[in-house]
Simulated scan of single mutants.
Amino acid sequence: MSAVAVVGAGPVGLTAALAAHSLGLDPVLLEAQPRTAVRPGSRAIFVHRATLDHFDRISRGLGDRVCAQGLVWRTKRTLWAGRQVHVHSYGATAAVPFTSLPQTVVEDLLRRACDAAGIRSVWGDLVRDVESTPDGVRLRTECGATHDVGHVIAADGARSRLRTQAGIALEGSTSTTEFVVVDVADSIRPDLAERVFHYRHPGVGGRNVLLVPFRGGWRVDVQCLHGDDGRQLVAQAHLWLPRVLPEVPDPRITWSSVYRFQQRLAARFTDAHRRILLAGEAAHLLPPFGARGMNSGISDAVAAARAVRAGSVEQYARVRRAAAEANVHAAGAALEHLLAARRGQRWLQWAAATASPLWSRAGHWLDAAPYGPRIRAVGY
């Protein structure tokens, strides 16, 4: 009996397999999609320092390789209706606090690390049935294979089949306001790269706009106004993108999407027999602001492998659910700030923007608030 199966070969599942291998377990990685399947878009582009440290612990030099492929921007800037209200630059000699690159590149590096470690993997075979007992788990696949394992780390995404078959509900809410994300190709010079947040951008009808550089281009995130049709806004991107990204004379869109903020949390992070451990989007769905989704999922993955090794699955479920609750709370605070549905919230933002030239803390608040409060006690 293999010690652990990992279902799902996104960044969370690949990390879980590497973490399990690093602890001396015998993981098998199961993925429904073929290995050659193409995943469009940059998706999660921001890799936190804590995540890079996780990578280095489970596979020597992996964090450094991710850093080498990514882009580190050293300046963050916030504007209100075209006027700067805050700017902060990291020192050139400071430790790398993060790196920014497409999720597809991170996945490719993780797959190579799994191959180099000799981790068994099965691609293009959906896990169809899951039977959990006090003694282990039996997995049956579409192609007729059976895997008997001691534990399963379920990293099979937001529509997790394992979560559903374990009878665990995904509870929470979805925002009514739409957001538009557009990837724009560009060869960015690292010394010129900046993360920029615009409140009420005059070039796109007073909508909030986030610009994040990454290796290969820009992520442009636009908050729709009440009554907007996100798909129509994407269709008109050729009109407003030059005003949002004047640095790119002929912006070429490589991917776009319309989404709503999800704030959802699994009722439990493990099944009744403590044999199935939920991780990543199988356990929680979070808005992208603050880069909490993939980074918290990778922390889940490492913690899940450790819990299987130590026999502390119940503790995993309790601690990681507490972390997810904190992330959902922080994401909710960020969403409330961005939507500013109440007149008092809008007045407070305007007052902070007005005061920012004379009071730096007002500008700092405007810069930090769209990402929610920092999480220190339970981590990502």
Rank of each mutant, 00 (worst) to 15 (best):
S2F: 12
G8W: 12
G8T: 09
G10C: 11
T15A: 09
A16W: 05
A19K: 07
D26P: 10
P27V: 06
L29W: 11
L29A: 10
E31T: 04
Q33C: 09
V38N: 02
G41S: 02
S42V: 07
S42L: 03
I45H: 03
H48R: 07
F55N: 00
R60V: 05
R60N: 09
G61R: 10
D64R: 12
R65F: 08
V66F: 01
C67R: 15
R74P: 01
T75I: 10
T78C: 08
T78L: 06
L79V: 08
A81M: 00
V85Y: 04
A94V: 05
V96N: 02
P97K: 07
L101M: 09
L101G: 00
T104M: 05
D108Q: 14
L109A: 00
L110S: 01
R112W: 07
A113F: 10
A116H: 11
I119C: 01
W123L: 03
G124E: 03
L126I: 08
V130T: 14
V130R: 06
E131P: 03
D135T: 14
R138V: 14
R140G: 00
R140L: 02
T141N: 08
T141H: 09
T141Q: 08
E142I: 08
C143S: 14
T146D: 09
H147S: 01
D148N: 13
A155T: 14
T164H: 15
A166L: 12
G167A: 10
T174A: 15
E178F: 12
V180H: 02
P190N: 04
D191K: 10
E194P: 03
H198N: 13
H201V: 10
H201N: 15
G203F: 02
G203M: 04
G205E: 13
R207C: 10
R207P: 11
N208S: 13
V209I: 11
V212L: 15
G216P: 11
G216I: 11
W218Y: 15
C224W: 04
L225T: 05
L239V: 05
P246E: 13
P246D: 13
R252T: 12
S256C: 08
S257N: 12
F261I: 13
Q262L: 09
R264S: 12
R264E: 10
T270K: 03
D271N: 06
R275E: 01
R275A: 00
H284Y: 11
M294S: 07
M294R: 05
S299A: 14
D300C: 09
D300F: 03
A301P: 04
A301M: 03
A303D: 06
A305D: 12
S312A: 15
S312I: 12
E314A: 15
R321E: 05
A322I: 08
A324I: 01
R343Q: 10
Q345K: 02
R346L: 09
W347V: 14
L348D: 13
L348K: 13
A355T: 06
S356Q: 02
S360V: 11
R361P: 04
G363I: 06
P370N: 03
G372E: 01
P373L: 02
G379M: 07
Y380T: 07
